[in-house]
């Protein structure tokens, strides 16, 4: 199935008609999710601030998931030389970077009323910051190499090295945290989550996923078309 779809033309043909529905689904889910966000009750401890969580948590999940997807696509691009996998990895990067930035910004906005500071150097936030730097490095490297195939290969290697390193960095940051953390900060993961808060979270998560898939498909398609244009244009200079 994957091999069958790895042909860029077939991929375009299969997904182009489905794409608007995915975009529509994302819109509907966002409308529903945002309604639930504001309709849900205040948290007894966090008050209205808890609503930031409905954006923050899915964004943070997506930040990690998109990087994982990039890693998997890079692996396929590197090992099996699938041109589509290269396009998929490249297309996912800026989306992932935006989700990561969103997670950092919403985290910071939530932290101010809750912790009394815009930024707490705790293990989780620091790791997400490093993840953001990975995205920036990936995009910068892709933009710096002129030859597209080489750019795809080099960034794929970078993505895989990053994927292997992320747990190590996460571990080191956690270890550093145990050395330096004095008073413990308020942690948001309580033992249970009330169902009226679970619903908006679930719907928003689904909405983020749909949004990602939609944007991703659009960007992959754009990538395929650009590549096609460039190649044929270069050939035309050779009459």
């Amino acid at each position: 199935m994957i091999t069958w779809l790895a042909n860029p033309e077939r991929f375009t043909r299969v997904f182009a008609p489905i794409r608007p529905y995915i975009g529509g689904l994302a819109a509907v889910l966002f409308a529903w999710g945002l309604y639930l966000c504001f309709a849900s009750p205040e948290d007894y401890q966090q008050g209205d601030t808890v609503r930031i969580m409905y954006l923050h948590v899915p964004a943070a999940w997506m930040a990690m998931m998109v990087y994982l997807i990039m890693g998997i696509a890079s692996f396929f691009g590197l090992i099996f030389r699938h041109a589509l996998a290269d396009a998929a990895a490249k297309a996912a990067a800026p989306i992932g970077a935006v989700f990561t930035a969103l997670a950092l910004i919403t985290g910071s906005l939530w932290g101010k009323p809750m912790w009394g500071t815009w930024w707490e150097w705790d293990g989780r936030m620091t790791s997400v910051l490093v993840l953001f730097l990975f995205y920036i490095g990936y995009i910068a490297l892709h933009a710096s190499i002129d030859d597209e195939v080489r750019a795809a290969k080099s960034t794929a290697i970078l993505a895989l090295v990053g994927l292997v390193n992320l747990p190590v960095i996460k571990f080191s940051v956690d270890w550093w945290n145990t050395l330096h953390q004095g008073a413990s900060v308020v942690r948001m993961d309580g033992p249970t989550i009330a169902p009226e808060m679970l619903w908006p979270l679930l719907v928003m998560t689904a909405a983020f996923h749909a949004l990602f898939v939609w944007l991703w498909l659009v960007r992959i398609d754009a990538e395929i078309i650009t590549r096609r244009y460039r190649t044929l244009r270069a050939r035309l200079s050779f009459q």
């Binding site: 490093v130 730097l133 990975f134 490095g137 910068a140 090295v161 390193n165 960095i169 080191s172």
Partner: peptide, 10 residues
């Protein structure tokens, strides 16, 4: 520097 520094963290 941009590529490498995050890996220098550990």
């Amino acid at each position: 520097a941009l590529l490498v520094l995050p890996f220098y963290v550990p």
